[in-house]
Write a protein that binds this DNA or RNA. Structure first.
Lengths: 223, 223
DNA sequence: GAAAGAACTTACTCGGAGTAAGTTACTCGG
DNA sequence: CCGAGTAACTTACTCCGAGTAAGTTCTTTC
């Protein structure tokens, strides 16, 4: 009765009504894209596996077969974004001629990436994996790893710019790196919630000035 | 059969076996204490209402009658902590003779409070209410309000210390305030997860120096 | 010592994560 | 062309946690 033209099935579904079977890789990609979108829109908690399944037009157990669990699916989304974001920022930093420029370039790259990938950002920090206690799921761990990678990057930058004579105080370096990471994260959240946020360049510039010269510039008439 | 001595019931339960009825206020307090502890240990998601009920030795619907919902219970925990934390930090800031000292004093108060109330901190930020999307529950909103109060405090401090001639650039003030808030939050999380973190004083000092003078001090042989 | 009301419970519904076991479509050797 | 084998997929559950309806004690008060 419902026999429709079988369609080629090797590519995108034809304009027909039913989606037929796809091979595993294609289906996985399809699921991942839907998941990234829905997680981005509704957050981790707000997304049910049935939602994703319905969106793809597939049944829930299939997703479990491919991704194991909700965390597994979320982690898969994260992996892509993590790589992209880290690469983007590292590239910008490494291309800069000196530390002062690297700081600015890194910030600009960070904020621009997040502007260009709004739901990526939601996936990365939404549902507030930020402060989760150790007992939280593997998803929290994964976001923590992304963060740790950035903190390492920052700490390395700081270390590289210590003068030769200076004994590196690892505590101080950690404090500074954690601070910068925290500041950029909060700024990103703030920008994403402000109707017309300042441009990446403006934010990066202000932050760079703050970090490089401290609060004093704000206290003198000349910027 | 199970009739035990009725016990006085006006105070803590006697050494007896069964807890009898208490009046509402007492029970509410008892529930709140248990909730604060369990939320602190296992986070919001990790805590079930049945857990809390079992801990208090009471049935779940009673908690719902008193607190309405899981969010309601969580919010009640938050309210106390929020007030305490805000007051502690504001007092320290206001008692300082000038802006530079206020910055330091505020940081010290913040980190010391969190050292003294470890599970308070967990309640405040655990379960990562930090980055939740707008669609997240009222609990996320409440933590956001705590944060907003701090950001206001910081922004006010910054504004008060602008020289008379300087036109306040609200964007820049926001950027700075958000940064500081983000930095202190991340430092708090970091300290809570580091086995032997640097003292509140050391962290506060480093952060104050960073903000006041920028990264330059790290680049010169003299601290 | 009963009426009234506060304190409290049993026994559910409902939704979402995760699973067991089966069914359908494609493919490849004969 | 045709069955066997297997990959793709589904129906129909279980289980657990939030939230609720409808009572059942205890305790106070006249």
């Amino acid at each position: 009765m419902t026999s429709t033209t079988p369609s080629t099935q090797t590519d995108e579904p034809a304009g027909g009504v039913v989606k037929r079977r796809r091979d595993r890789a294609a289906r996985e990609r399809e699921i991942l894209e839907a998941a990234e979108r829905i997680f981005g829109e509704r957050g981790y908690q707000g997304t049910s596996m049935d939602d994703v399944a319905a969106q793809v037009g597939v049944s829930k157990p299939l997703i479990y077969q491919y991704y194991g669990s909700k965390d597994g699916l979320f982690l898969a989304c994260l992996a892509r974004l993590r790589t992209q974001l880290l690469d983007t920022v590292s590239d910008a930093v490494l291309a800069a001629p000196d530390a002062e420029d690297a700081l600015y370039a890194g910030f600009v790259a960070w904020f621009e990436f997040l502007d260009d990938h709004p739901q990526a950002w939601s996936v990365l920090i939404d549902e507030g994996m930020l402060g989760m206690s150790p007992a939280a799921g593997p998803a929290a761990q994964a976001t923590d790893e992304v963060r740790a990678a950035f903190i390492d990057l920052i700490a390395t930058m700081v270390r590289m710019n210590l003068p030769p004579g200076r004994t590196p105080d690892e505590d101080e370096i950690q404090i500074v790196a954690q601070s910068i990471s925290g500041a950029t994260e909060r700024l990103a959240i703030w920008r994403s919630r402000t109707p017309t946020p300042p441009s990446p360049q403006k934010v990066a510039r202000t932050l760079q000035t703050l970090l490089w010269q401290g609060l004093n510039p704000l206290r003198t008439p000349t910027t």
